[in-house]
Amino acid sequence: MPVLDAIVRRTDQGQSAVRPNEIEQDTGFDTKTVERALRALASEEQDLFLEVAWGFGGGAPTVFGATGHARRLAGAWPTADVLADRLIQTMKDMADAEEDEEKASRLKRTAAWFGTTARDILVQALAKGVTGQIG
């Protein structure tokens, strides 16, 4: 996952090609570890990259672009479940930072309610919002 995360992060920042040495810098992995990870990722049944250019002599490839599948795996293209978890955590963080006790209490109660009783409702609503089915 750290290799995939590095690729997705760099492509999402506008980098068109991600080279093995850049992944080494981002992950702290050695060359052989990055090469093994890239070979494994490139052999996945569902494409993770738009294009893979193999190095001379079969060396580690340069990766061009990340697919939606890669982004979902890396958490960069969140599912409704991931969005729900982020929303709940954000409410908890806001409650912890809130100086007004009444507001903090409401935020904590809301986060607790969404975190337990209403989680399924929140996930369904977020899924509809993400897919554009609200209207």
Rank of each mutant, 00 (worst) to 15 (best):
G55L: 09
I121F: 03
I134M: 14
T11W: 01
P61T: 05
D120T: 06
P61C: 06
A40M: 09
D81H: 03
F49G: 07
G57D: 05
G28L: 07
A84G: 03
L83Y: 03
F29G: 02
L41G: 13
F56R: 14
G58Y: 04
A127Q: 05
L83D: 07
W77D: 13
V82F: 04
F64H: 10
V82Y: 09
A74W: 00
D85M: 04
A17I: 15
R71I: 02
A118L: 00
G65R: 06
D26F: 09
W77A: 12
R36G: 01
M1R: 09
A84C: 04
T67S: 12
I121A: 07
R119W: 01
A40S: 13
V8F: 04
A70Y: 08
T79H: 01
S105W: 03
M94F: 12
L48G: 09
F64A: 05
W113L: 15
A104C: 03
E51K: 10
Q15N: 05
T31H: 14
E98H: 14
Q124F: 00
F56Y: 12
V123G: 02
A70T: 05
A70G: 10
G57A: 06
E99V: 10
L126P: 04
V34Q: 04
I134Q: 07
F29T: 00
E99D: 13
T27W: 12
K108C: 03
K108E: 15
A84R: 06
G75F: 09
D5P: 07
A104Y: 10
M94E: 15
T90Y: 08
A40Y: 11
L73V: 02
A40T: 13
A6N: 03
L73Y: 06
W77V: 03
G65E: 06
Q124M: 00
A74Y: 00
T79I: 02
R10A: 12
I134D: 08
N21V: 13
E51T: 12
T116S: 15
L73T: 08
